[in-house]
Design a protein around this nucleic acid. Structure first.
Length: 435
RNA sequence: GGAGAGGUGGCUGAGUGGUUGAAAGCAGCGGUUUGCUAAACCGUCGUACGGGUCAAACCUGUACCGGGGGUUCGAAUCCCCCCCUCUCCGCCA
């Protein structure tokens, strides 16, 4: 079984817009540090169009002469001269094609590496230091003892077995046991119930591996290949987030369902975390496999800004109901991910480590992913147009568990569980140390 | 994994190597009729990428009938490879 060739649209940013107003694109790309690529794209595009025009002129002639051949033959007349002419055109076309094909491929490859432009409302900044706290919720718990990090708590409570997990797949593949495994499952179920029953999402259970076309559609490929796990003898990658399969549900489709379509999915996520070696090696802060509940939306361009606000509130609701203090950052231009035009991060307070931990990233991609994946709808004028896509974690499990443990810890070594979660744990109120 | 059947526009569904980008029907859109709804009738109705126009409307070219390649002056139509769906068999959670 060979790899499926990906059929990806040549557009990610609108090429015509890039041509018509390169300066606007240049400003946006500069904010994301991808300015140089723009000139490369524009040059490749100019070359490509010149070749395309020449090729199409030849094709036009070939088509006209061929039709004439048919006409002559139908009239029982000699057409040898015209057939010779077409043969000549074809050999010329062969030469054209050897120039055009690499040109188109190069143009598309460069385009696929161009990141999305930041929304004009996004604060300008070079890196994470430029992110802005937009609001915070909840009081950070006060302790009359020194709060422990979750890996200490987990050891005392018998929740994790990192050593044996490493035996199975290496460091960063956590093994949860007993109450730890159950806590994880309870949180997943709690979040899915919340989003489906109260926030208006449809639950989906997607594949956990996706092909190259899907990975390209949402923007993981080509840029993030080294951050993903790949299956060796088929065209499949382990998903780094449910965003990939869920967003690609409508790839190459004109969505007929009324917008917005709001979907939520549980999935494991697999990330190589290339370049993060040695960072956050203890506990659950940064792992190669983790569980997450994801929210994905397909909307009209008119409503995507509002839907982003709702998305953030839906993620916040998870944290509020679990009584966990958090803050919300708006990412600045320099910290936006490849595909995002605007993004809010939700960070939970981890008192045992005295730091904030990101548990959710809520992004509006505008039509960036829709272009790449060709996800469209019919607008009110009846025209086919690209949807806007959004997604956000609702939320990621490991760091959620970290906060539940570190915020809920008591002087006696037990951990108080949030009230809203207890029904999912058979009424359990506390995790007690194994004695 | 083996055998068979099939993949055509939003859907259903015709299709001959040569003015077919593709019959017909449904849906959609615009309109007429109508007290409203329904119905009827008329018209319109694929996508992408180029060129023309400051731009839009519009005009025009090319490509696209699962994907790729081949035969041919000319391919949805013939040939090869691949993918997918369905049915049956085998294997297995």
């Amino acid at each position: 079984m060979g790899p499926t060739p990906s059929r990806v649209s040549c557009t990610m940013l609108d090429l015509k817009k890039l041509r018509d107003d390169p300066e606007a694109a240049r400003r946006g790309l500069a904010a994301k540090g991808a300015e140089a690529l723009l000139d490369e794209v524009l040059a490749l595009d100019a070359q490509r169009r010149a070749l395309l025009t020449a090729t199409e002129a030849l094709q036009n002639e070939r088509n006209r002469v061929s039709k004439e051949v048919g006409r002559l033959k139908a009239a029982k007349q000699d057409a040898t001269a015209l057939m010779e002419r077409v043969r000549a055109i074809n050999s010329e076309l062969q030469e054209q094609a050897t120039a055009l094909q690499p040109s188109e491929a190069a143009c598309e490859a460069a385009l696929l590496r161009l990141p999305n432009l930041p929304d004009p409302s996004v604060p300008v900044g070079a890196d994470a230091a430029g992110n802005q706290v937009v609001r915070a919720w909840g009081d950070r718990p006060a302790f009359d003892f020194t709060p422990l990090p979750h890996w200490e708590l987990g050891a005392r409570l018998g929740l994790f077995d990192f050593e044996r997990g490493a035996r199975l797949a290496g460091a960063g593949f956590p093994l949860l046991r007993g109450p730890g495994a159950r806590l994880s499952r309870a949180l997943i179920q709690f979040m899915l119930d919340l989003h489906t029953r109260e926030h208006g999402y449809e639950e989906v259970a997607p594949p956990f591996l996706c092909n190259t076309a899907a990975m390209t559609g949402t923007g993981q490929l080509p840029k993030m290949a080294e951050d993903m796990y790949r299956v060796t003898d088929s065209d499949l990658w382990l998903i780094p987030t449910a965003e990939v399969p869920v967003t690609n549900i409508y790839r190459e489709e004109i969505i007929r369902a009324p917008l917005p379509v709001r979907l939520t999915a549980y999935s494991p996520c697999f990330r190589r975390e290339a370049g993060a070696a040695g960072k956050d090696t203890r506990g659950l802060n940064r792992v190669h496999q983790f569980d997450k509940v994801e929210m994905v939306k397909f909307t009209t361009p008119e409503s995507s800004a509002d839907e982003l606000d709702r998305l953030v509130r839906d993620a916040e609701d998870v944290l509020q109901r679990l009584e966990l203090p958090y803050r919300i950052l708006e990412l600045c231009t320099g910290d936006l991910s490849f595909a995002a035009a605007k993004c809010y991060d939700l960070e939970l307070w981890a008192p045992g480590q005295d730091r904030w931990l990101e548990v959710s990233s809520c992004s509006n991609f505008l039509d960036f992913q829709a272009r790449r994946a060709r996800i469209r709808y019919k607008n009110e004028a009846g025209q086919t147009a690209f949807v806007h896509t959004l997604n956000g974690s609702g939320v990621a499990l490991p760091r959620l568990i970290v906060a539940v443990l570190e915020c809920g810890q008591q002087a006696d070594g037990s951990v108080r569980l949030p009230t809203a979660l207890r029904p999912y744990l058979g009424g359990l109120e506390r995790l007690e140390p194994a004695s």
